[in-house]
Amino acid sequence: MTEPTSLSLSACSHLPIPFNTSPEPLELIAQGAESLLYKTTFLFPSQPAALKIRPVKKWRHPTLDKRLTRARILAEARVLVKLSGEGIAVGGGGRKVKDPKKGNGVVGGMRGLVPAVLGLDWEGGWLVTEWIEGGTVKEAIYRVSRARTMGGSGVGLSGDAVVEELRGLLRKMGEVVGKLHACGVVHGDLTTSNMMLRPFGTASPQSSKPEGHDEASAQLSTGPAPDVDQPKSTSRSQTSLEGDIVLIDFGLATQSVSDEDRAVDLYVLERAFGSTHPREEELFACVLDAYAHGEGSGMNGKAGKTVIRKLEDVRMRGRKKSMLG
């Protein structure tokens, strides 16, 4: 990922139809290896949306490029639609679908916890999803981490209280991943940059008019530039970790219920967390604890614990095979 640049700002002619006629330039939010993420509106000027474009890769054969772009856009959209439960009943709790207590509560179990699909075009190579308000979990943790460094001074919070808040956030991360897995999907690229912390009350039911998006847009960035936090965030509580965790970027997601895939998913998150938030690394156990206990009607207790045991194996071999000549 490179930092969001002003690359997009002059004209939109390089964007696929219908975004090339946008009267205002789209705001480039993030640029990954595969795709460009823009903020735009969809159908109504009042409906903010995230536009993900998979540009043509000139280095690969055009036929292959078309085939891959189509497959990937469709796969991502299918996973998102499945998760938001649009008319699809979802089994729960891993393999034991018939668990009477918890697992079955997950028909459309991720509704509101993943962005809804608004539109797509595999020929043009784009996917539009609902815009998620708030910032990334990564930014939130950085913010809190800074407050911790300053000893909580001026915030009226002791270091311990901050740690408690962090624990709460991490438990929520474990819950949401548990729910995702219970729905039969593994994310494939879990990091704190792929989790949004959406303040309560800013969820936009698709049909209704979204509220409060204009003032939030100032603090939005899924880009990896956490250190450019605007001064205005200090006006809020330094440690506002309230809100729902919403998972984004399902570009590498697959539909799977295998313990192995789920454990690798957790392992990827564990490694990413450790390298992004070294100071908070010892708190990561909260994520696994919440996951294993199936909090928030995620993985039911038994399935969750099996995955955690599998995670031990994955850790031991470091995800990788032992290398043969």
Partner: peptide
Amino acid sequence: QETVFAMLVEITERAMAHVG
């Protein structure tokens, strides 16, 4: 060649994006 090299270039690009 076209298929396997596209795979190799893709993972290389992803790694480059990852480490900047």
